[in-house]
Amino acid sequence: MKVRFTVNGRAATVEADAEMRLLDALRDELHLTGTKEGCGEGECGACTVLLDGRPVNSCLVLAAQAEGRDVLTIEGLAAGPQLHPIQQAFVDAGAAQCGFCTPGFVMSTYALLRDHPAPSDEEILTALEGNLCRCTGYVKIVDAVRRAAERLAEARAQETA
């Protein structure tokens, strides 16, 4: 079957069988390999993308279920060579070691800061509860989220100034 949806603002069409997951459609058909497959069963969050603006595990969504919907992946954040402020904050905070979990963390952070521009530590931990990191630990990741929130706030202040 043909599945049509929007990815990072562009129309996409994928020829999918019923078993194809959104994760497979993104990586294998659309070659958007920034989204990673970790556990493949919804435990680790490495494959997190936003579906109609909400973080989901793309390994637990069938490609067919994305019909007509809006998908945002890690590739949709940067503006050309310019990293998104959340990505830059992860770099600056040293919040990555092997980096495999990072796209998922960045997508969860993106949804968090859109809804809660100045999150409490509790809100940060809840927003990231579905993302696992097995090497660097969470201190620098939480630090990166705080930095990103500050920078986004500064950028908004400059825009309105």
Partner: peptide, 9 residues
Amino acid sequence: LGCVQIRNR
């Protein structure tokens, strides 16, 4: 229950 991603689905 679950996590953000699971509760969204």
